[in-house]
Design a protein around this nucleic acid. Sequence first.
DNA 1: TTGTTAAACGGAGCAATCCTCCGCATATAT
DNA 2: ATATATGCGGAGGATTGCTCCGTTTAACAA
Lengths: 193, 193
Amino acid sequence: MTDEKKPRRRPRSDGQRNRTNLLNVAKAAFTAGETDIPLDEIARRAGVGIGTLYRHFPNRDALIEAVYRAELDRLADAAPLLAAQHPPVEALRAWMRLFVDYIAAKLVIAPALNGLAGGTGTLYAQSGTVLQSAIDGLVAAAVASGDISADIEPVDLLRALAGVSNYAAGPGWETSAKRLVDILIAGSRVSTS
Amino acid sequence: MTDEKKPRRRPRSDGQRNRTNLLNVAKAAFTAGETDIPLDEIARRAGVGIGTLYRHFPNRDALIEAVYRAELDRLADAAPLLAAQHPPVEALRAWMRLFVDYIAAKLVIAPALNGLAGGTGTLYAQSGTVLQSAIDGLVAAAVASGDISADIEPVDLLRALAGVSNYAAGPGWETSAKRLVDILIAGSRVSTS
DNA sequence: TTGTTAAACGGAGCAATCCTCCGCATATAT
DNA sequence: ATATATGCGGAGGATTGCTCCGTTTAACAA
């Protein structure tokens, strides 16, 4: 497997520009709830040909994943920052709330995302990792400080949060989601019984 | 709104039979992970014409919802049964575990289901109610017995469980899901701090 | 049993969408 | 200025969702 990268040339500037254009347009569309928008339409709005879209993103799922990944990376990056500013348990809570805020900010990538899950589930395996490591650190710190139980698996919390994004509809869902965060925190503490 | 039903005749037997046939075939296909199966194929496997499928279910989403609803009803029906057999908190825990089991039994209707959420979200509003009332009863009993906090909104727990179904992939997901149930129960108890 | 009628059936065909293919244009490097 | 690899663009084949309407058949009455 000689998998070496040989960048004989620098990547072309127009290519980069078109790529980010496509991502922005797609993100805007998905955010606006137009999850079933034809790909031709996305290409048109971005001012490129359909062929260009398909070169950058070989199929619909790849495009969705790319949009999704970009946002998740930003969310993941917030974790170490919060860890530096708050005591462990509060950092964890804050991050989970941030997760909720992301969904509230109409960055509802979840629905689009879930369409993929039906296929292989590989998307989660890939994209999940950045969130995974983000929350891993937060939980590890809280365990180390003796605040929450060592039995807690970070992925459990992630699953719960993911669920929120699906039910993210109807009035009052946001307060409900934040209550859930508190329940999760309370349930994760070292047993006081 | 004269919304009266005038069943001038009894429903035709072949109609009923074809309808259940379609539901069974669709359920089998979705369960097997073929969420993207063409509707023509479903009709073929059920031994009916495509037109028949579309009369019973006006579009793909309607078919998915019908499959989904049938399973959810069964899950909801289990709630009062469990309530009669266990103390309140344990009944709640048992029901939530049953929820997990349903997903484990490859009744993964969730992925298909989530595809719809992107649209209007009305599906959740409709189908969610049967689960809602099921868990409402369980929680109310647990609150009444003084075991869990009155602040708990049942829907919060439902959201979390729904999340599990999305992340239902990879080895060990099931134990993770059951751990989550325990966390939720622990977090819902009357605060001991 | 036989006739009548409303209900259900079935599949050809239209429209929309996904994605491929390949000749053309342009940015990069010499 | 020239060469060439990289990226662009859109026509078109294949697939799928859904509609429409003539034909078939089960339910009911006499």
